[in-house]
Amino acid sequence: MKTLADLREIREKAKREMAQREQTARYRIVVAMGTCGIAAGARSVMSAILDELNKRHITDTVVTQTGCLGYCDQEPLVQVMQPDQTTITYGKVTPEVARAVVSEHIVNHKIITNHVFLQK
């Protein structure tokens, strides 16, 4: 049985590690999880991304979620924030496209142009 102090220490350690990973992350993937995104399948898209990142042992990418981005007809939307601070937004993302975002964009640094909805 761990003591409360042990638990607190583990939590602090985890927090420090998370902060460090956020800082060193090259890519940041954001899945839009508004009502529109969820209804369109954003949860499976997120699961596919997490699974693919894990399979490929990727350690320089952080995944987060956000609310509605205002383009509900294009949901599910996935944003990739790149090391050069530009953001690529993919629209109508299926779990298969989400896996390709990891294997092509994150691993090979190639934007999947036919699924890009916004680029800036």
């Binding site: 583990i10 939590r11 350690k13 985890a14 927090k15 699961s47 990142l53 894990n54 990727i58 995944v63």
Partner: peptide, 23 residues
């Protein structure tokens, strides 16, 4: 969710390594 953080710290893995397991 503390369980996930504790596992991550103990195994020194990425959080998403634990996605399938926690699910």
């Amino acid at each position: 969710s503390f369980w996930l953080l504790a596992q991550m710290a103990a195994r020194n893995c990425m959080l998403y390594t634990l996605a399938g397991e926690s699910e």
